[in-house]
Design a protein around this nucleic acid. Structure first.
Lengths: 194, 194, 194, 194
DNA sequence: CATGAATGAGCATTCATTCAT
DNA sequence: CATGAATGAATGCTCATTCAT
């Protein structure tokens, strides 16, 4: 493994500690202990405890993208690709449920909101491209506006995943059914023509 | 105006203070000051600072329902009713953006998650009924599963609204376009037949 | 002994701790421990560690006045009374050298300077009265301006005492000689006619 | 301008920063930033943050002496020379009020007190010489003890200046009157015979 | 000599919670 | 039921100092 900068060490440690303890119970001392650095070093890279949040958000968005890119096979049918997207997003949400909730709240705690759009931008773009291709291949309805719909889709799938994994304690059977319902919902929404 | 119980005063004050200051900066002393009661009195009604959260969530869900019920006119077309639902949810989200983000995070902070489903239950039910009626009238596709789709819709419309009002700083024109895209998306998703 | 308010307990403890440890090494925890109260209680009475300083200054000025009033016998000659004043001020300075240095620095640390004149006011007034009486009795030169000279005298005697007790490590013999020189100096300055 | 050694750069920067921020808020990082050197370099010249204090004090005493020597004209009358001394000391005090207060407190913070006398020694000597000359010329009373009185005078004039510039917020008119009172006071104290 | 990133001990301050009245 | 003064545990952050380069 290559050298990891101290800043990256902090971010990684922060993701983990926030995930395990939640925002209020996370102490800077926990983060630095896990990162293997001194307390003061934290403040060389971040001005305050909460200022790691945007960096964490970036990491999370990257995780989403990595998973989605790995999962989606462009040779598969649009319908299948849609399922793959949903699966990828659900998987990341499941694994990082706590951090994701924190990011949402964390970003709005500061005046970092402005960053949000920027952070998600790459993911929005990817999804946009996906829709543009599908549209030009006649696989989805022509009235889809790729940019706007890409944002809707990401928000939607994440929200559906959060609903399942964060808020509604559902069993696996119900989880599967809910996911199916989502996919059918999306297929109709996009007017998919396989 | 009728008498407001101290408990309600606390909840209302808490909504306002959380809205203005965010979860971390909200002090019990702020809440009681605004509520016009003594510090100790707070603890006669709530065991801890965070235990107001579910009560706040209930209030917010009620706000959603009141707005939706007021806005939706059953005599209008399904398509129109859908717009009305979207408008109502967007309006509440716009006015209470901060608290809503806090509730999401706040509920997951505690082990109150379990309450979430219960709190939203009435709203889910209402939406479910809406879909059942629409379905039995042949206004939406028959494959819609009302319970599951009701959850999806609520999560989706809220998420779309949050995206606009919390995270992406969009202008009014773009806000309108995004909302239109959402409605068209939903119409196709539900397979609306006016 | 009568009841001492918490505020007074804090001030008394602060005087003692500052005297013993100096401004930088004095911890709030030391003060409250000595005062026999909880750490948080300190902040019910003072907004910050340094904000006790003006209160301490008041206490010190009172100590000066008490000593001076006790020492000076109006039936004695002016010359003797002058010695008594010097002795009183020297004694307090000797006993509280550290706090006195701290007060000087402490007051200028904050923007509390403005208080300084107010705090010393009673002492200035007393000295002024002393000069007025002496002047109207023809015991000192007629050109003395009581208000202005009272300030000069207090500043002067304190400075002379500080010089001896704070800065120049002198032996007792030299201390006595220096004090004599001061008194002769003052006698001429005031144009004393016994 | 000739080359300034790093040590001098540090001292000059320290004077300025202490003047602006006060002793507690002055960080070594501020000093080195202003001095244009690296943080670690500071410790090549001074063992600790407070150890610059004596060096600063030396600089300040030198400033006093330079001003006094420049101002005082030996050909003028004793009375005039006295005014010149007062003016010089007042001027320096006015310009460096904050540092001067800090030095007083700063020196007593450490166990550097012992240095104080040494640092002031040259100034004491100069004043002593001044008094010896005046005395041998019969310009001041014969009972003046030059060494002791030189210390008193310096302490006194500085204290009077500090009173005006540090503690009592007086207007220019009052400042002038207070200074006059001081000079008359000194003339009588020294028994000046022009 | 010079650097400046890294250190980590140290402390002021906050604020949820309690409890005597 | 209501009060609000008192509590004290808990922790974010600072900054003088070090040391490998």
């Amino acid at each position: 493994m290559v050298d990891i900068s101290k800043k990256e060490k902090i971010i990684n440690a922060a993701v983990q500690v926030f995930q395990e303890k939640g925002i209020e119970k996370t102490k800077v001392s926990d983060i630095v202990k896990l990162a293997g650095i001194a307390q003061g070093t934290f403040y060389l890279y971040f001005p305050s405890k909460l200022s790691v949040m945007p960096a964490i958000a970036e990491v999370m968005v990257k995780k989403f993208m990595v998973e989605v890119k790995n999962e989606v096979d462009e040779n598969d049918s649009i319908s299948t690709q849609l399922s793959q997207i949903v699966n990828a997003i659900f998987r990341v949400t499941k694994n990082y449920r706590e951090v994701l909730a924190l990011i949402y709240a964390g970003l709005s705690t500061d005046d970092n909101l402005k960053n949000w759009e920027m952070i998600y931008n790459a993911f929005y773009s990817w999804m946009s491209e996906f829709l543009i291709t599908a549209k030009s291949n006649g696989k989805i309805r022509g009235s889809v506006h790729p940019e706007r719909t890409s944002k809707l889709m990401i928000a939607f799938i994440e929200a559906a995943a959060e609903q399942i994994y964060l808020y509604d304690a559902v069993n696996e059977e119900e989880e599967r059914m809910q996911k199916s319902e989502l996919i059918v919902f999306l297929e109709h929404a996009l007017g998919i023509q396989n």
